[in-house]
Amino acid sequence: MAVVTLNPGLVVRLQELQPGSSFVLPNQSLRVVGSLQSFDSTSGIAVLVDAGASLRLDLEHLRELPLRVGSLFEFIGELEVDTTQQLTLKARVGRNVDGMDMKLFDKVLQLRRRFEKDYKHN
C-alpha cells in the first residue's frame, strides 16, 4: 500500500491570500471557502469570492462536481503563483457547504490556530 504523502490543505480565508502572506507559496496546499461567483465550463476556471476578496480556481479535475453560481463551496488544492503574481488554486477536492455559518467558521478558525500554536509551543 502506498504511503500517504499528501499535504493537509491549510484552512485560510480568501482575504488572507495577499502578496507577502505566509500562505502564498507556490504549490502550497490550501483549503478555501467562498461563494462561487462565476464558472466557465469549457476552461474549468471559476472565481470564488468571500468578504470582498476573490480567488481564481482551476476546477479541471472536478468536472463531476455539481456547481451552482452563488452557492458556498469549499475547495482543497494546490496554489499556483504565476509570473504576474496571479494566484490560482488547482482544486483536487471540493464540496458544497451551503448553510455554513461563516461568522462561526471565522471565529473557530482563529481559536483553532491559537490552540495549535499553543500545543506545538508546549
Binding site: 455554513m100 473557530v108 481559536l111 490552540f115
Partner: peptide, 16 residues
Amino acid sequence: DPNAEVLHWVECMRLA
C-alpha cells in the same frame, strides 16, 4: 451538516 466540522473543532479543543 455544513457546520459539523466547525463544531467538531470546538469540541476537540474543549475536550483537550
